[in-house]
Amino acid sequence: MSDLNQNMIEKYRNSFLKEVEANVEEGEWVKMCMQCGVCSGSCPLGKHWAHPPQEIFMMIRAGQREAVLSSDAMWMCTSCYNCIVRCPRELPITHIMHGLAHYARRLGLAPKGQPTMAFAQIFWDNMMKAGRVNELKLGLSLYYKDGFVQGIKNSLANMKLGQNMIKAKRMNAVEFFGGHGVKDVSGLQKMIRKAQELEDARIAKYGK
């Protein structure tokens, strides 16, 4: 991962903008931003971001590579699409945010323990086991991601919610023991591995 990072630094010594254009999904739109700030003003979580979208675009142009890629700003995007709807230049801002987050993770620069990223990994691992998401285990993994003591605290805090869900048959405690899955799990896993191979090959060839 960090080799890739070094390679990219070498390759795009002058222009982080060009790097983004070549490697980030929808990154070629970044240059078209006209810095009006409507995206930042429209983002419902904007004030909690270290760098709202407009600023991220400006940082990319200013070549602030480390600051952008190690930022947790783009991980904060909830895909509400307000920015896309409102951007006067019609930039796919939501997609660019996810593209940047994904690229930062590929380079190993994403902030360690970033909750959105951690949850995404938990979700993926959970789903790959049986080919279906085991909601009970997904919830528990999330509660216990920061250790056993914090996990107990989280569980107790949400006990009432869990009980109600069981009562309403929205959750089944038996799922804890194995749970149900797709018919051919190994077939699915094989399929996903192939898809990953194809994607890696494409990234190696085209950058994204």
């Binding site: 060009k18 240059k31 078209m32 200013a62 230049r89």
Partner: peptide, 14 residues
């Protein structure tokens, strides 16, 4: 025309 400049990767810095 502004967009044409951006399209050609002219960097606009405020």
């Amino acid at each position: 025309f502004y967009r044409a400049g951006q399209q050609k990767m002219v960097t606009f810095s405020k």
